[in-house]
C-alpha cells in the first residue's frame, strides 16, 4: 500500500506554498510560486512541483487542505481552513509550548496566541492597511531601486538606523526620498525600513515569553528576527522553512480530519 500523503496548500496574496507530509509529519515535498491572478492554476502548478519533488502521484494524496487568501480557489482541496488556524497549527507543530506566533505575510500580518496545548487564545490581524507587511518592503525596494532579495544584505551592513515616522506606505516612500536627499546611506535606510516593519507588528498586540516568527518575509529577511530579538529581549524561534508554516499547518489539519473520520 502506498504511503499516506497529506497536502497543505497556502494560497497567499503574494505567494502560493504547498507542503506534502507523510503520516510521520515529515515534509516529502514542497513548492513556492508567485500567486499571480489565477489562483486555481497556480495552486495546480505548485502542487505539481511538490509532487515531483516528493516522487508522489496526485492520486496518492490522502487529503488536501487549502488555506490563505485564495483558499476557496483550490479546486482539488478536500477542505479549507483559515490561515490563522494553519499558521497556529504549523507553528505549534515545531514549537509545542505556549507561544505567540507572529506571521509576516505578503499583505497581512497576524499575531496568534496559543496555550501550552496549542489552543488558540486570541488572534489579531493587521487592519486594512498593508503597512508593515511584505508589500511594504516590496514597495520600498522599488522606490530605492534595489532588488528585493538584496534588502537583507543591505540591512546587515547598516552602521546606524534611519528611523521612519509614518504609518503610511506612500508617505514612508516620500520620507525615504527625503532621507536620500539628506545624504543618508541606503543600508541605514533599509535597516530603518526593517525597524518600521517590527514597530508595526509590535503595535498590534502584546507578546508572551516565547515567540515564533513565520511567513515569507522572515524566510528571506532573517535579519528581521535578529532585530526583533534585540528590540523585545525575547526568545524568538523560527521554523526551518518559516514560509511553509501555513501550508504545513494545513496538511496537519488534513491529517487530523482523516484520523477523526477513521475514529468515528
Amino acid at each position: 500500500m502506498a504511503e499516506e500523503v497529506f497536502a497543505g496548500v497556502d494560497v497567499g496574496a503574494s505567494r502560493t506554498k504547498v507542503a506534502l507530509l507523510n503520516k510521520d509529519k515529515e515534509v516529502l515535498g514542497c513548492a513556492v510560486r508567485k500567486s499571480g491572478t489565477d489562483f486555481a492554476r497556480t495552486s495546480e502548478l505548485a502542487l505539481g512541483e511538490a509532487l515531483e519533488m516528493a516522487g508522489v502521484r496526485k492520486e496518492d494524496i490522502t487529503f488536501s487542505v487549502a488555506t490563505g487568501y485564495g483558499r476557496k480557489n483550490v479546486i482539488y482541496a478536500d477542505d479549507t481552513r483559515t490561515e490563522i488556524g494553519c499558521h497556529a497549527k504549523g507553528a505549534f507543530h515545531f514549537f509545542p509550548m505556549a507561544i505567540t506566533v507572529i506571521d509576516i505575510g505578503g499583505q497581512d500580518n497576524k499575531i496568534i496566541k496559543l496555550d501550552e496545548r496549542g489552543r488558540r487564545l486570541s488572534f489579531k490581524m493587521n487592519r486594512k492597511c498593508a503597512a508593515g507587511t511584505g508589500a511594504f518592503l516590496e514597495e520600498m525596494a522599488m522606490r530605492l531601486d534595489i532588488p528585493l532579495e538584496e534588502m537583507e544584505g543591505l540591512a546587515r551592513q547598516a552602521v546606524e538606523t534611519v528611523e521612519l515616522g509614518s504609518f503610511c506606505t506612500v508617505f514612508s516612500a516620500t520620507e525615504v526620498l527625503e532621507k536620500i536627499r539628506q545624504g543618508k546611506k541606503v543600508p541605514d535606510i533599509v535597516k530603518g525600513l526593517f525597524l518600521s516593519v517590527i514597530k508595526r507588528v509590535l503595535e498590534m498586540d502584546s507578546l508572551t515569553e516565547r515567540v515564533v516568527m513565520t511567513g515569507g518575509v522572515v524566510e528571506y529577511n532573517p535579519y528581521l528576527v535578529v532585530m526583533m530579538r534585540e528590540r523585545t529581549g525575547l526568545e524568538i524561534m523560527v521554523p526551518e522553512r518559516p514560509q511553509l508554516t501555513g501550508a504545513i499547518g494545513a496538511a496537519l489539519y488534513g491529517m487530523e480530519e482523516v484520523a477523526e473520520a477513521a475514529a468515528a
Binding site: R81, I84, R120, F123, K128
Partner: peptide, 12 residues
C-alpha cells in the same frame, strides 16, 4: 479580511 477573521474566530 473580515470574512477570514470571522471564520478564524469560529474555528477558535
Amino acid at each position: 479580511q473580515a470574512k477570514t477573521n470571522v471564520e478564524a474566530f469560529i474555528e477558535q
